[in-house]
């Protein structure tokens, strides 16, 4: 572990913005919320944020990504992978864990280079959570801290940041701030320990379940009469919960032509399983026509499918879906608590 004074850290970030060929991204205020965006100045970087509107997944799996370029006259198609190397500052542990889950999806299924190359060319600088969203239950999900998934990890210890190095990429980045780094003593180590000890108090205290009960609870509730219908009753099928989720990766593939209709791009775009047409095929057959079936599907993905396939519970407790849901029916804590209580009652 190293430490860097806050003023020196700002200088370091400003130097990267000025000199590093990579795009420097950081969490910034965006009206009354926060967002990952390109940094113009270190003073815009808000490492005290609670949660961002969108997770940093957008840098590895963009909302719109060109997979193939084509010419409709010649029928010629060219594979494309648009990789922008980036340094991303301020990723919270739950988002780092979500990124590690996404890595497994895109590595272990088919080595999807359109995702993996963007990951390889990115440096992830995490930050331990100084503040938490009122909706976050990361502590319950075991994602309030992480020992992996970052290249560098910062912890705010007053007038300095403690810096943990997680990878070669991280230590290489830190080379550029070498002269400003301090060695740490017992005092700094103690401050980081205290920071982490105080973390649980920042989170909501209503979750009553254990994350590793979720696959079993979901199996018990899969066919439960009325359960999903009641919970989904007010769902607008808007897909917001999908869009803001750090582990949602389902996508659509579609062709978009330019104005000449001869050139165009085949795009991968975010899709959402809560949208009505998600499982619809030509001829209007829809394999998940009812919103309750779609609502249940989302929970099955988060709590069981990813666990069965990769051993991960794919809800990291960020609370984004709970916060953004217009009819306020997407809070996983509410649904998981209902299951836990119902099972206890049996």
């Amino acid at each position: 572990m190293k430490a860097i004074g806050k003023a020196e850290f700002s200088n370091f970030v400003d130097e990267l913005i000025a000199d590093d060929p990579r795009e420097v991204i950081g969490v910034q205020a965006k009206s009354n919320k926060f967002a990952f965006d390109p940094l113009k100045s270190a003073e815009d970087l808000r490492l005290d944020y609670d949660v961002t509107i969108l997770p940093p997944k957008k840098y590895f799996m963009p909302q719109r990504e060109t997979l193939v370029k084509y010419n409709t006259n010649e029928g010629e198609m060219t594979a494309v992978n648009e990789v922008i190397p980036r340094i991303i500052f301020g990723i919270h542990p739950y988002d780092l864990i979500a990124i590690q889950q996404m890595d497994k999806v895109f590595e272990e299924t088919h080595s999807d280079e359109n995702y993996l190359a963007k990951r390889r060319e990115s440096v992830l600088v995490g930050v331990n959570m100084k503040n938490a969203s009122e909706w976050s239950f990361a502590h319950t999900m075991g994602t309030a801290t992480t020992d992996s998934g970052y290249d560098l990890m910062l912890t705010d210890i007053g007038d300095k940041y403690a810096v943990e190095i997680g990878s070669v990429k991280g230590s290489e980045l830190l080379e550029e701030a070498k002269s400003q780094l301090d060695d740490v003593g017992m005092e700094e180590i103690e401050k980081v320990r205290e920071f982490k000890e105080e973390l649980p108090d920042k989170f909501r205290d209503d979750p009553e379940f254990d994350p590793f009960e979720l696959p079993r609870l979901l199996s018990e509730y899969y066919g439960k009469d009325g359960f999903w219908e009641e919970n989904a009753e007010d769902c607008l099928s808007c897909g917001t919960c999908n869009l803001v989720c750090p582990t949602c990766y389902c996508f659509d593939v579609k062709d978009v032509n330019d104005i000449t209709l001869t050139e165009g791009e085949r795009l991968r775009t975010w899709d959402g399983c809560m949208l009505e047409a998600f499982a619809q095929v030509a001829g209007d057959e829809n394999f998940r026509e009812e919103k309750a079936a779609r609502y249940r599907h989302r929970y099955m993905r988060k709590g069981r499918y990813m666990y069965n396939k990769f051993g991960d519970i794919a809800c990291v407790g960020c609370g984004r879906c709970s916060e953004q849901c217009v009819p306020d029916i997407a809070d996983p804590v509410d649904v998981f608590n209902q299951m836990k209580e119902g099972t206890n009652g049996i």
Partner: peptide, 22 residues
């Protein structure tokens, strides 16, 4: 038959849920 956008188990469209697994 199911909706499929990738054919290789990534895009998520063709998942079929069951009581115990998918």
């Amino acid at each position: 038959e199911r909706r499929m956008k990738c054919g290789i188990g990534e895009c998520g469209h063709c998942q079929i849920n069951g009581a115990e697994e998918e």
